[in-house]
Design a protein around this nucleic acid. Sequence first.
DNA 1: CTAAGGACCTGTCGGC
DNA 2: TGCCGACAGGTCCTTA
Length: 270
Amino acid sequence: MPELPEVETSRLGIAPYCVNHKITHILVREPRLRWPVELSIGKKMVGQTITQVERRGKYLLLVTGIGQLMIHLGMSGSLRVLSRITEPGKHDHIDITLSSGNVIRFNDPRRFGSVIFNSQGELHPLLSRLGVEPLSDEFTPELLYQICHQRKAAIKSVIMNSRLLVGVGNIYAQEALFRAGIHPARAANKIAMARLARLTEMIKQVLNEAIEAGGSSLNDFTSAEGRPGYFQHTFQVYGRGGKPCKQCQSKLKQMVIAQRTTVYCCRCQR
DNA sequence: CTAAGGACCTGTCGGC
DNA sequence: TGCCGACAGGTCCTTA
């Protein structure tokens, strides 16, 4: 599920239960995630108090005095807060129990997610190669121009490349390009500055809207059933191939870019 | 350096 | 109903 807005929603959802609480136990039922989960993760973290829950790209960072737990939700991961340990469901791979008695439960059917320990003061290699945060002031039209002007790859691949720009996945790349009126396959270096400026703005806009929608539909991060915190957003193009464009009514086209389905309007996007 | 494709994994859905 | 292939919201790694 998760792109940046879902990760941010998860962060906001678990933070109140984590911050200023001590980790009393970490149970790893299934260590075979994207990267093998360290067996010593519990020994290291138990007794530590979580001081903050941060986000870098799509990584959630549970910060303590000795280091941080880096959680990535991959394609299918989710977090949930339980008021006590309950019978684990399928794919409930990791439980982090806190001094309050609450449990942060990590579920991930496809196991593309990860839970990694990173020592205090060290910059983890997976974080060190990440690009700019799209919602930060650093992400400007000028920076996007710098990123694009020497790349001939499709603009969609460029904005989805986490070494350049983090957090934009297949859904929001499509939505932002539609809003900006840019064809997803257009070579990045063939887009005029003014249009890149518009794209910069639309990336921020679509992510911010999704975060807001997440926040408002996030009533129950502790609910026992279902996935917490995710929301049915209405999309302009994502998943709407063959349907009429909401702007001009022409039939939305579909193509594959960088191995991923891409829907766009050939009239509204050039 | 860039760009493109494969790999990792399970679940679901549509077609036969 | 059952089986099979295609596809799913990520991203690292290898190859050219």
